[in-house]
Design a protein around this nucleic acid. Structure first.
Lengths: 247, 247
DNA sequence: GCAAAAGTGTTGGAAATACACCCATGT
DNA sequence: ACATGGGTGTATTTCCAACACTTTTGC
């Protein structure tokens, strides 16, 4: 139940003025931010966008892209704004992952952050602002991020691994037209595994969500493969079936 | 109030005083709350805990259990506090579901809320404080909740349906010792479906997470069934296998 | 012609489903 | 005795995993 007015601080004990002051300060505000875990796919590797942190406590460390939520803007809008400022925004997939609210996760005070996960196609979205050394990092080499961003990143990556097996998000990371080899490379990179090529094809053809574009790869130093598009319309109509119990 | 003899401030757009006031008020703070979707299981029906809203805009409507986050308390701690205040807290399962931050979801101002889902055993947790008509409602009869709580409830329910198929949460809703019939009734209630009794048993025995307590049901007007416990230790050791691709 | 990847089917095992009868208890 | 749900096994089907050779292109 939410009170219509903010509650008075509940002061039961005698405290020093400075403690009271600190509590008043902190009780009067919790800041809320959005952090974006932005995945891309290039050279058959899964990548993530990072910048250098400019927080004093974390100089030199890499950090997710985040910003405070503007009080007059919807939460999702905040996430889209951050993405837009950094990349441009066609063909992007964005979804909330989780909210992180440990007491001391931010050195500047109480900041609760909502993590969003975004998938973008690196080729179609050249970075426009390169402040703070913004660039793509191989996910396998991400370590020791600023704040609690390492933890957020790791949860987001696990989230992506699970999600991509249940929903067709992966296509956002590929060109509109792609070969089955590219699709399989994507899955193998994200899930960090190898799959049987024939079974992979069989699987996707059986789903019947791939549209044959009647085009072929060009400029490949081997037999060119067919190019496909993903049929979002057909997918949307499909209702998810009962999945069984499987711990 | 701006005095007529002073120069006009450099305002590019003319706004009413009340608009300016509202913008100042809202730009200065975003409140953050936690709302708990608390599920229980009784009489073979899935239930949810609700109270009467005391927000003026929603008089008479039912509402989830929520409260503002205390700036000196961890986010999860807020959720546990709300639960504790309302129920007592043994054997409870609590997990964050999603954060809701639409601009106008709360009439009192900008409030972003983090939804938590909790599963408790109704028999073991008699309600202690019955303010605001706190009691259990059949999930099938929940409608027209206050705020955006209907939406939060519906997402949480879907979350539960999915989660219970992939993780053994359901046991939190049952007594420590339960019969297979009770377990199946639980699954059928949550998933709103019927299952084959023999296959259900086979499934759970094959998982090998049930411990035979060598006790039987008593006071049942038919052949008594065996009572089982769930083996959390054994489950924890199990690593989740590769799940395949399945849109 | 050679390297490199595209394209293609079958088979065996595992898991899920569908299904029917006897048993133990309380009334 | 009867009503109620407990307990069990098998046949069928479906899904998944494993596996090898031929084809097409660039060089």
């Amino acid at each position: 139940m939410i009170e219509e007015t903010l509650p008075m601080p509940d002061i039961k004990y005698i405290k020093s003025l400075s403690t009271l002051h600190a509590e008043f300060e902190s009780s009067s505000k919790i800041a809320i931010s959005v952090d974006c875990v932005i995945f891309g796919f290039d050279e058959n590797k899964l990548k993530i966008l990072l910048i250098r942190s400019d927080a004093k406590k974390f100089v030199g460390k890499w950090s997710l892209l985040g910003d405070l939520v503007n009080p007059l803007e919807d939460l999702n809008t905040s996430a889209y704004r951050i993405l837009k400022n950094r990349t441009g925004l066609n063909d992007l997939y964005l979804e909330q992952v989780q909210t992180f609210g440990s007491l001391n996760r931010h050195p500047a005070g109480r900041v609760i952050t909502v993590a969003y996960c975004s998938l973008i196609n690196i080729q179609n979205h050249k970075l426009k602002i390169l402040d703070n050394e913004l660039h793509w990092h191989d996910v396998k080499e991400v370590s020791n991020l600023a704040f609690d961003h390492q933890y957020i990143f790791e949860l987001s990556y696990k989230w992506l691994q699970k999600k991509i097996q249940e929903h067709p998000l992966g296509f956002s990371l590929l060109p509109k037209k792609f070969s089955l080899r590219e699709l399989q490379n994507l899955y193998e990179a994200i899930l960090d595994t190898k799959m049987d090529r024939r079974n992979f094809r069989k699987k996707f053809f059986a789903m019947d969500f791939l549209i044959d574009t009647n085009e072929m790869e060009t400029d490949v130093p081997h037999r060119p493969g067919k190019l496909y598009k993903f049929n979002y319309e057909k997918y949307k109509k499909k209702k998810k079936k009962w999945g069984g119990i499987d711990f």
